[in-house]
Structure formats: C-alpha cells, structure tokens
C-alpha cells in the first residue's frame, strides 16, 4: 500500500533528515514509528503527507508514484488519509459537531452526507452526546477523540497520527491508542509516530525504529528497544 524506496531527504540547511529509507506498509497494518526527537520520524510523516518532497528516492501509494505529484493533486491524495496531531488542532469557535463536519465541508461533501457521516464518526469515538459542546469544554482525551473523528469522517484508507498521546496523561493516552486499535481492526491502515514506550510495548504491533535518519530496526510485533 505504502512504499518508500531509497528515500533520502536533505533540507535547505544541509541537514540530512532521512537517509536511504526503504520500507513497505501493507493495507490494514498498524505501524509505530519510534525513535528519539530529531531522528527523522516527522520527516517521514511529512513526506507521506506531501508537505515536502524527497531529495532522492520514490514514494508509492497503492502502486502509484506520488514522489513528484503535481501540487493541484495533493488535496485529493490527502483525502485518502486521516491526520491526527499531538496538539489536536481543533477550531475553538466551532462545536464538536462543526469541527468534524468541517473536514467534510472543505472537500465539498453535500449536506445530506455530512448529516449522516458526522454522527457516525462521533459515535465511533464515543462523543455523540457531546456534539454541541465546544473544545474548551472537553478534556484533553475528549479533544483528541474529536480530532480522531474528524480524521475518520471522510473514510480514509489510512490514518496518520503524529504523537497523538504526547499531550495526554497515561490513562487517556491508552484510551486513544485503544481507539486507534479499534479503527485499525475495521480495516484502516494506522501509522503512529510516538515516544510512548509503555503503549508501544503493550500493543505488540509493528515497530519501525528510526535513528539518525536510517531505519534501525523493523519488527512485526516489536517493542521499544531503548
């Protein structure tokens, strides 16, 4: 489904963030990207989201080369991905319902579909009863659930989460990871960049460890090694 082929990325500053990375993530996989800060995890995420282009190598999604995809096509690629950030990135002046509906409105979905899909996504994350509340009325965990609902509402084939539990206490972090696990069980490919050692160890999923821009290890049911 996702193929990184000999990917290297050197920024304009001259820093090489990733070097000769090759990996494949299959449809339905649940993969953790782990490693210390600055190891290249975020660069790989950005490459996948087409925020940046690799200096060398090729990226394929479903067999299609997206390495030098025209800028006008990037929005359509991103519609196949749901994205969750560490800082939730919710719009504070919109309700929970409106935040989730926002992801559908901006891709010009029709109102009928929005009315059908948004409650579904909210019930999946257990927040249908809080649809009319504003983000600042919710706990951190609940806000991250809203972000997950927003990422899922357009039925993406993969969900990309960059440090989704970084701002949460351990119990809430575990709740979010369980939610991501449930989503994965429903068939969505999930890629998570994280520092959460306990969660990685406990979940026994594929662990891709990156160190100084290269893949240090790639274990199917791995744990945090450092």
């Amino acid at each position: 489904m996702i193929t990184f082929e000999n990917i290297s990325k050197t920024y304009a500053t001259g820093i090489e963030a990733v070097h000769d990375v090759s990996l494949e993530i299959e449809k339905g996989d649940f993969a953790f990207f782990i490693g210390p800060s600055g190891c290249g995890k975020s660069t790989l995420m950005k490459l996948l989201l087409k925020e940046i282009e690799p200096t060398v190598g090729k990226i394929y999604i479903n067999g299609k080369d997206i390495t030098h995809m025209p800028r006008k096509n990037i929005p359509y690629l991103r519609r196949s991905m749901g994205i969750v950030f560490q800082d939730f990135r919710l719009l504070q002046d919109k309700t929970v319902y409106e935040n989730v509906a926002f992801a559908m409105r901006v891709i010009e979905a029709n109102s009928k579909l929005i009315k059908k899909q948004v409650p579904n996504a909210l019930s999946l994350v257990g927040l249908l009863n809080k649809a009319n509340m504003y983000p600042d009325e919710l706990s951190g965990g609940e806000q991250q659930r809203v972000a997950v609902a927003r990422a899922l509402v357009n039925n993406p084939m993969m969900l990309i989460a960059d440090e989704p539990t970084g701002n949460l206490d351990p119990d809430t972090a575990w709740e979010i990871m369980s939610l991501l696990n449930d989503i994965n069980r429903r068939g969505t490919t999930v890629i998570v960049a994280t520092h959460a050692k306990e969660i990685v160890d406990k979940m026994q999923k594929r662990v891709i460890e990156i160190d100084k821009g290269v893949i240090h290890s790639d274990i199917k049911k791995g744990v945090y090694t450092k």
Partner: peptide, 17 residues
C-alpha cells in the same frame, strides 16, 4: 491560519481555501 492549515491537511483544494 490554524483553520487554513487544517483545511489543507484534510484535503481542501487551493480554490476552496
């Protein structure tokens, strides 16, 4: 700017934004 960045991440086209 936060709203625009979210719009772009969820797949809004330049025209829509």
């Amino acid at each position: 700017r936060k709203e625009i960045s979210i719009m772009k991440y969820v797949g809004a086209t330049d025209r829509f934004t």
